[in-house]
Amino acid sequence: MSNTVFEMNGTTLTVKPVGELNSMTTPDFEEELRTHLSGVSNLIVDFENVDYISSAGIRLFLGLNQTLKNRGAEMKLIHVSDPIMSIFDLIGFQDVVTVE
């Protein structure tokens, strides 16, 4: 996840992780992401370069969504590929998290 791109625009943070979000890579990604989160009112996670997501990755976003909501901020996922979208569909992820 060292290739992750972070882009701050006002209070909007766009983050673009690369590769797999699995139980090995997610903890590092989370740690890095959290250092960028202060003052963010709008988090956009660009999935364009994400190939695979495991439960660890999904749980991270479920947790982040809740954290951000609690402080009145928003999160959305964009450019989600069809295979990952079908996982989101199966588990009803969009009932909780905004996916565009």
Partner: peptide, 12 residues
């Protein structure tokens, strides 16, 4: 899973 309980993803 959706409520945030850590468990394996139940696919189909």
């Amino acid at each position: 899973f959706i409520a945030g309980v850590p468990t394996a993803i139940p696919y189909d």
